[in-house]
């Protein structure tokens, strides 16, 4: 594994920022398209800007238009359209690919909130297809079977923004260097077990805290150690947070899980199998939405956690985990 070439993809203003949950710095326009009359399409500003609009929100996995409507009614700020939720991918096995564009279009037509969809790591043609059918965000996701075991997609060339998973700061900054406008923890999708998401978020925050007190000589060494582009590491150290929005994902199943990730500094959460594999999806979805808003208010968290019915059955994460350790995918 090599450190990616250094490209100045994110420029940020000289503002002190708090860790997690705070303001995300604005970005200088990196233009990738022109509209007649002078507007610029697909700038990094509009790509990362949509992620900023999703903050404090819950993005829910849905497999059809009916689930998408339930998610929208429950207050989802976006939906992730996919054919099988991670728990089913894990149980059924086989190669998991981009979903049928027809199914994604039905979901786009059913709701007014942004629609995301997943492509396999490195599969830039699946990404070209999703861009042309008009999805609002692409998740280059380890939950699907990787199409390239060495390269991720060069995301700068797309007008549609990308979110990518990360287990630590180095991985997050490599993805941002490739053009990702939003980061999420990988967690361990489809397990209903939040432990890996916690591990990944703590790793990112701990490394940011360490970097924030380093001088420049130390940052050069740290960049080499974590295989991150130096300029992005330096910017992250100065901001004391990732330079793009950072969500939690992978194994969240309860309102308390969502609030835990928010208190650990995430800007919002993805919930995959945890909603539609539970006893009462609409009620649980709404409770998780409230938990993300009121993540610092234990009294409200207690209220919304009552009587939600059965949570999804969780899996312990050990060497025998059925479907394997998805978080290890990604380079």
């Amino acid at each position: 594994m090599t450190t990616p070439a250094v490209t100045p993809s994110v420029q940020t203003p000289p503002l002190p920022q708090g860790a997690g949950g705070g303001a995300v710095p604005s970005t200088a326009p990196a233009r990738s398209g022109q509209r007649d009359g002078g507007g610029s399409l697909g700038t990094f500003g509009v790509k990362s800007g949509l992620a900023q609009m999703l903050k404090g929100g819950v993005i829910m996995d849905v497999v059809n238009a009916e689930q998408a409507r339930i998610a929208e009614e429950a207050g989802a700020c976006a939906v992730m359209a996919l054919e099988r939720v991670p728990a089913d991918i894990r149980a059924e096995g086989g190669v998991a690919r981009m979903s049928d564009p027809q199914m994604i279009k039905e979901i786009v037509d059913a709701v007014t909130i942004p629609v995301m969809a997943k492509v396999r790591i490195g599969h830039f043609v699946e990404a070209q297809i999703l861009q042309v059918i008009g999805v609002d965000y692409i998740d280059e996701s380890e939950v699907l079977t990787p199409a390239d075991d060495e390269h991720h997609i060069n995301k700068h060339g797309f007008k549609v923004p990308f979110v990518c998973g990360a287990r630590d700061l180095g991985e997050a900054l490599r993805r941002i260097s490739e053009g990702a406008a939003m980061i999420r923890t990988k967690g361990e999708a489809g397990t209903g077990n939040v432990v890996e998401a916690v591990r990944h978020q703590r790793a990112v925050m701990s490394q940011i805290r360490r970097a924030s007190v380093m001088n420049e000589e130390e940052l050069y060494v740290f960049a080499k150690e974590i295989q991150a582009p130096f300029h992005l590491l330096k910017e992250t150290a100065r901001l004391k947070r990732l330079p793009v929005v950072n969500f939690a994902a992978g194994g969240l199943a309860t309102p308390a899980d969502a609030a835990l990730m928010m208190q650990l500094g995430c800007d919002g959460v993805f919930v995959g199998s945890g909603i539609f594999h539970s006893g009462d999806p609409a009620k649980r979805a709404r409770a998780i939405v409230q938990a993300v808003t009121h993540y610092n208010n234990p009294k409200i968290l207690a209220e919304v956690s009552e009587n939600l019915g059965a949570a999804m059955v969780g899996l312990t994460i050990d060497a025998d985990l059925k479907g394997g350790h998805l978080a290890k995918r990604g380079w």
Binding site: S40, L41, G45, V46, L50, T112, G134, V135
Partner: peptide, 14 residues
Amino acid sequence: RNGWGSQVESFEAD
């Protein structure tokens, strides 16, 4: 709502 279409139509303008 959403007068320009999906996210790929989002833009910056002076």
